[in-house]
Amino acid sequence: MNTIKSFFAIALLVMITASAPVQSGYKVGDTAMDFKLKNYDGRMVSMADYRDAKGYIVIFNCNTCPYSKAYDSRIIALNKKYASKGFPVLTINPNDPDLSPGDSFDEMKKQAKRNKYDFPYLVDETQDVARAYGATNTPHVYVLDKVSNEKLKVVYIGAIDDNSRNAETVTKKYVEDAIGALMQSKNVPVTQTKAIGCTIKWRNS
């Protein structure tokens, strides 16, 4: 009898484990890790460098994706609006330049200079940061709340807004709403969204 019981218990466990979706990367509420990555200007950048920051807008992004292009001016505007209020933008390019030559370090440098980025555009050479965060596509945003110097809490994961095609007809500004809530110490209204995007070009995949 006991054998049968334990058999069912094991079978149930196997079923539960097998049906659990593969969860990798951060979920809302998790603590995010800091990173130290090379910026387009050669400088090494970490979030900890921003002593007075209250939080961060971390965006996995690239040169080549048409969605990244469509959002470029909106990302620049986010930093202009929120960096001075304590929420700087940091962008990270995780694409393997062997698979996507337009995302090489040289091309990143050109793009950052041409578009006058006044925020870091970092290269995630090992793709470890993108993997740890669980980024899947570009642009993919993580809004972090700096609870303390040791704790960066993920409060929003997803898209910048609800309209990739046209910035003027956006009805839901997810990232701005998240930061607005943080500034007023309120709960972030929408914590997770999905959007169409280009898949990250993973090495050897």
């Binding site: 899947t136 596509n137 898209a159 969204t193 999905k194 959007a195 169409i196 990250i200």
Partner: peptide, 14 residues
């Protein structure tokens, strides 16, 4: 965001 999950919940949208 309103329709990706209707195809599959595991789809990120990429």
């Amino acid at each position: 965001n309103t329709w990706i999950d209707k195809i599959d919940k595991s789809w990120s949208g990429a």
